[in-house]
Structure formats: C-alpha cells, structure tokens
C-alpha cells in the first residue's frame, strides 16, 4: 500500500512548509467540509463556525505536526474539528436543552436523518476521493451511485462500451476503498 502519501499535493506541501497563501488555499478547499462536520454535532451555526475558526487556526499553528503518512490533510482537519466540537459540547453539557436538541436532531441539516459525525467524515473522505478520480471514471461511478443505473444503463447513457464501464466501476471503487481505508486508519 502506498499510504496516504500519494495524495500529498502541492497545496498540502506548501501548507506544511508555511508558505504565504497556503492557509487560504487550504481553507478554500476544505472549509465547507469542516463546517459540515462541525455542524453535524453542533446545532448552532455560530458554534459550528467557531469550531471552523479554531480548527484552521490550530491546524496552521501545529502544521509541522501533520504527518501525511498517517492520513490526508482533510482527515487531519476533520479530526481537529471533531475534537473541538466535542470540547464545546462538554462545555454545554450542563445546558440540558442543548443536549436534548442534539439527541432530537443529531445536528446536521434539517432535511437529514440523524447521522453520526464519524459517518460524515467518511462521506467527506469518499467525496474528496470521488473528486480526484479521472473525469470519465467519476461520471460512470456517479451514475451508479446517484442515479442507481446498472452498468448496461450507464453504457447506454454514456455511449461507452460495456467493458469500459465495468472497468471504470471497478477501478473507481478500488480507488475509493484505498482512500477510505487509509484515512479510516488515521482516526
């Protein structure tokens, strides 16, 4: 296994090196995902945004401790965010109402079923991995995931040969699994 090191791109490297503009680039890439994870356990948007702020500030100050061999930058950030959210929840524990709201809604967006925050992290990891697939492989896989098309329907929709569709599905799934297992091991 190559570990997560093959996912270390220029942005991550310049982040660890402390280059000018690197924190901003990382923020643009991951702030939405960090906010999603924070919101999954904190019903207050203001609390969730506070967690996002603390997460990026903490990450920047301790960037030298980030080890790409142990997992991706995304998961490192999300792990920091989870810890901060839990800290904040503990601070709120005496407020029974907050706790009750959490149990009632599970946090997250109102339309969602309650989802464990760890599962949200999994989704973010897989979503990023989907985004890094070659475009055609990604399109084929998303037609299977989001539209529930069979490989034959995907071939008919895209005009790709059946064998190509099957190999895109296999390679795409293999890649997602690698990324997920590497990053799952980091938690």
């Amino acid at each position: 296994m190559t570990g997560a090191s093959d996912t270390v791109d220029e942005t991550t490297k310049s982040f660890v090196a402390g280059d000018e503009g690197a924190l901003r680039a990382v923020y643009e890439r991951y702030a939405a995902a960090v906010l999603r994870v924070a919101s999954s356990s904190l019903p207050s948007r203001a609390d969730a945004e506070d967690v996002v702020q603390t997460t990026f500030v903490t990450a920047w100050r301790s960037r030298e401790s980030f080890d790409p061999a142990k997992g991706s930058l995304l998961v490192w950030l999300l792990t920091i965010a989870r810890r901060r959210a839990i800290d904040l929840l503990r601070a709120h524990t005496r407020d029974e109402q907050v706790v009750r709201v959490l149990h009632d809604t599970g946090g997250g967006s109102p339309s969602d079923e309650p989802v464990r925050p760890e599962r949200i992290v999994d989704r973010m990891v897989v979503l990023e991995a989907i985004g890094e697939l070659p475009p055609q492989q990604r399109q084929v896989l998303l037609l299977a995931f989001y539209d529930d098309l069979t490989h034959e329907q995907i071939a008919a929709t895209t005009g790709l040969p059946l064998g190509t569709v099957k190999s895109h599905l296999r390679r795409g799934m293999t890649r997602l699994r690698q990324r997920w297992e590497v990053d799952g091991g980091a938690r």
Binding site: I120, R123, V126, L127, F145, Y146, L176
Partner: peptide, 9 residues
Amino acid sequence: VGRETRAER
C-alpha cells in the same frame, strides 16, 4: 458511503 455522498454535494 459513495451513495450517501449524494446528500453532501
């Protein structure tokens, strides 16, 4: 998990 990402797009 891949299917669930639909909710996170």
